[in-house]
Design a protein around this nucleic acid. Structure first.
Lengths: 137, 137
DNA sequence: TTGAAAATGAAAACCGTTTTCAAATTCGGA
DNA sequence: TCCGAATTTGAAAACGGTTTTCATTTTCAA
């Protein structure tokens, strides 16, 4: 993870926070990160985590998700700059899967031609239930 | 608009609120409704609007949207219970269009078969820019 | 008309997030 | 290595939207 202009100096706190975040494969809240770092014996403030998370979101490293009940959670993102991409968001466990397929491309073309709507391919979200949660229930 | 079990009595306030809401073709906030009703000379409290909006959301009459900056807005919804349906959400003006096409159905089938993901067709959201906003800019 | 149930709304509480600001830290250059 | 300007930190206060509280008012069936 590299720092942008707002991340000029390296500090113990930033290193701990960014390291923990880059290990996350599921959505997490600011409080989750805080609690885990405190549990590990780190000494830092909630405010610092808010700042680092904002900067990583700004830099495109995190996706910010606000659910219907107002809870704010973040997802650590790999780079997905190509076309034909969408997100599959599981409403049970909160996992965000990336999926690529030509059908997404077809759909966005169609929506542009027939509905006059220019889709942002980084913002296509299909909500539902993931394989794991289907099997567990 | 009809009331559910939490809407036992008819009142002046509920009638004003539900009438104004059912006229809305765009996203609105609780504050928007409050301001407009006060402007029209109605006498009621913010709290009451929060309660009516919650109940209408519960009843499926409203979609609640929380944007990345935390702002909560609602959209009055027509019934859309059939398959092959998705929402086109304009990130400029906030309008939510409904679109129906067989490609949505194809995509959800594919996602189920190939990615093991069961999509909720009432929750497919394609973010982007609508025709009107494209032409205005 | 009456009264039990429901609804109202002002004020207080709530809670996640942002701002403030004095103190501590970082790190390039002397 | 030391200095000092720029940056970062975090406790506390402020903030703002939403929910809760609770005394009062309203509704409507009997």
């Amino acid at each position: 993870m590299h720092y942008n202009k707002y991340m000029t100096y390296n500090t113990r706190q930033k290193n701990s926070i960014t390291e923990l975040i880059s290990e996350q494969s599921q959505e997490f809240s600011v409080k989750d990160i805080y609690n885990e770092l405190i549990r590990r014996g780190e000494d830092l403030g909630l405010t610092t985590i808010y700042r680092v998370v904002d900067e990583l979101t700004e830099a495109g490293k995190l996706r910010k998700n606000v659910s219907a009940d107002g809870a704010v959670r973040y997802q650590y993102l790999a780079d997905c700059n190509h076309l034909g991409h969408c997100y599959l968001k599981c409403q049970h466990c909160g996992r965000l899967k990336h999926a690529d397929c030509h059908l997404v491309r077809q759909l966005t073309d169609h929506v542009r031609d027939e509905h006059g709507f220019q889709a942002d391919e980084k913002q296509i979200i299909i909500n539902g239930t993931c394989e794991r949660c289907i099997n567990e229930n």
